[in-house]
Design a protein around this nucleic acid. Structure first.
Length: 239
DNA sequence: AAATTCGTCAACCGCGCTGTT
DNA sequence: TAACAGCGCGGTTGACGAATT
């Protein structure tokens, strides 16, 4: 489908938000409500794109947002939900009042991932890490967009595309991760499996963030139900 | 003290979906 | 039914402070 850029980037402010911008956005939304993100910036007097405004509101300015101090209970819940849902951060966030998908995603990537690895658990499948589990993971229905994007040309980044000069430079985290992945697969005889086109489960039913709505949206016998059950419950049955 | 590396997280990017025309 | 607009999502980046060398 035809798709125009979300905004013309010329003349728009980027980077961290100032308190003045926060105030403008908050005031506007309090007066007019959420939505119409595309036209919101000009109406609110902001030099930001609509997406940026939405993100700022959803993650930081919205009333009831908790910041930091994720409790052990919350961590436990995140871990369990991740074992059920995979990287569906918005669904996971929906079960944690006051937490945003972005915060949970960050916390997962920076804290929980390490924690699980340190305790010998493969975070992606929530089982003890063993080589033979690789194929189970791929069949478990937990799929990410990364696979879909793998054919795209990588975005040009001045830092990461620097030619070999012999000069030490700071490596991006992606490069580091790629190194680890390369090491892990080195000498591996893991076969490339055909993976069916990933299905975005949340969108297959509704845009609600609610796990309950996801679970109740389809009924047994419905194709969508089978997909949903595979996606959500197979990892548990295999445990 | 300076240089380098690491860790964190706010923000950006691009894709795909739904709704509307 | 195609084209488009708007939105939400998940992956990734990069700035910045902390820790280490």
């Amino acid at each position: 489908m035809g798709r125009s850029p979300c905004c013309t980037k010329v003349g728009l402010q980027r980077g961290p938000w100032s308190s003045k911008e926060d105030t403008l956005l908050t005031n506007y939304i309090q007066e007019h409500g959420e939505g119409q993100w595309r036209s919101l910036p000009s109406k609110a007097g902001l030099l930001r794109c609509g997406k940026s405004c939405r993100l700022r509101w959803m993650n930081y300015l919205r009333p009831g947002i908790k910041r930091g101090n994720i409790t052990p209970d919350e961590e436990d819940l995140i871990t369990r939900l991740h074992s059920l849902l995979g990287n569906r951060w918005s669904l996971i966030a929906g079960r944690l009042p006051g937490r945003t998908d972005n915060e949970i995603k960050n916390h997962w990537n920076t804290h929980l991932l390490k924690k699980l690895k340190n305790s010998g658990i493969e975070p992606k499948i929530h089982k003890p890490s063993t080589k033979c589990l690789k194929e189970d993971t791929k069949n478990a229905g937990i799929e990410t967009k990364k696979h879909k994007r793998s054919t795209k040309c990588p975005k040009e980044k001045s830092q990461s595309t620097e030619p070999e000069t012999g000069i030490t430079r700071r490596r991006t985290k992606k490069e580091k991760k790629d190194d680890v992945n390369a090491k892990n697969t080195e000498g591996s005889d893991t076969k490339t499996l055909h993976i069916p086109k990933p299905i975005r489960v949340s969108s297959a039913f509704s845009r609600s963030n609610s796990l309950d709505s996801l679970l109740s949206a389809a009924s047994p016998g419905d194709d969508r139900f089978d997909i949903k059950m595979d996606s959500l419950l197979l990892p548990l049955f295999r445990a």
